[in-house]
C-alpha cells in the first residue's frame, strides 16, 4: 500500500465541505440559498484551463483533478443497505513528481488566492494561513492509496516536456532531411542541435499545459 511509484506520487485527499449556506454578503446568493458545495463547484468549473490552470504553475504536476463527491451511490436491490454521506467532499487528486510537502507548498505559494477561494468552503480551513498550515490541512484529509499504477514514467515534468519537444522537432527534422547529401545532412543536424539545445531542459521546450505544438 503506497502513495508512490518510483518518483511519482499519487495524492488523494477528501476535504469535507461545510454543510449549509455561505455567509457571502452578496444578496443574490442568499436569495438563491447558495450552499457551500454549489459555490465550490461554481469556482472549480470557472477555473482557467490548460496553461492557465493553477496546476500549470505548480511544480511537477503531471495530471491533477478536482471534483465534488456529493454522495455515495445506492446499489439497487433488496439485499443492500442504503448509505448516505453526512458531508459532501471536495476530492483533490494529483499525480506529480517528487515529495508531497514541496508539492503542496508550491501549490500554495504560486496560487494562494485560488487555493483560498476554493478551500474556504471546507471544514476547518479557517485555521490555514500559510503554506505549512496548508500542507498540514491536506495531509489531514489524505487517504492512503491502496494500489498506484504508473503507466507513464516518473521523470520530472520539465524533462518530460523537453523530451516531447525534442521528439516533435526531431521527427520534423527527419522528414525534411530525406534525400539530402551526407554533407548537407551533417550541416543541418548541427543547426538542429543549436536550435533545440538538447542539454538545456528549460528552454526551448513545451510549456506545462500547452495545447498547441507549433514549431
Amino acid at each position: 500500500m503506497a502513495n508512490t511509484s518510483g518518483n511519482a506520487y499519487g495524492l488523494t485527499a477528501l476535504c469535507p465541505i461545510i454543510n449549509g449556506h455561505t455567509n457571502d454578503s452578496n444578496p443574490l446568493y442568499k436569495a438563491a440559498g447558495e450552499s457551500h458545495d454549489k459555490e465550490v463547484r461554481r469556482i472549480l468549473q470557472a477555473l482557467p484551463l490548460n496553461q492557465e490552470s493553477p496546476f500549470a504553475n505548480t511544480d511537477n504536476t503531471y495530471l491533477a483533478r478536482l471534483f465534488i463527491l456529493n454522495d455515495v451511490f445506492f446499489q439497487q436491490g433488496n439485499d443492500f443497505k442504503r448509505d448516505q454521506l453526512k458531508s459532501k467532499y471536495l476530492c483533490f487528486n494529483s499525480n506529480f513528481h517528487g515529495e508531497l510537502e514541496p508539492y503542496l507548498t508550491s501549490l500554495w505559494n504560486n496560487n494562494e488566492n485560488q487555493v483560498r477561494e476554493i478551500w474556504q468552503h471546507c471544514v476547518a480551513f479557517e485555521s490555514v494561513s500559510n503554506a505549512n498550515d496548508f500542507v498540514r490541512y491536506i495531509k489531514s484529509c489524505q487517504l492512503t492509496t491502496t494500489l498506484f499504477f504508473n503507466g507513464s514514467n516518473d521523470q520530472p515534468v520539465a524533462e518530460q516536456l523537453k523530451a516531447l519537444y525534442v521528439k516533435q522537432m526531431f521527427s520534423e527534422f527527419v522528414l525534411t532531411q530525406q534525400g539530402k547529401s551526407a554533407a548537407e545532412l551533417k550541416q543541418a543536424f548541427k543547426y538542429f542541435l543549436q536550435r533545440v539545445q538538447l542539454n538545456d531542459v528549460k528552454s526551448p521546450s513545451w510549456k506545462p499545459g500547452q495545447t498547441e505544438v507549433a514549431l
Binding site: 468549473q45 490552470s53 495530471l63 465534488i68 513545451w206 499545459g209 500547452q210 498547441e212
Partner: peptide
C-alpha cells in the same frame, strides 16, 4: 470531474515514454 489539468494535452502516455 469539475476541473482537470494535464501537463501535456497534445501527448499520449506512449508519446511521453
Amino acid at each position: 470531474t469539475d476541473h482537470f489539468y494535464n501537463a501535456y494535452p497534445c501527448a499520449s502516455s506512449n508519446d511521453v515514454k
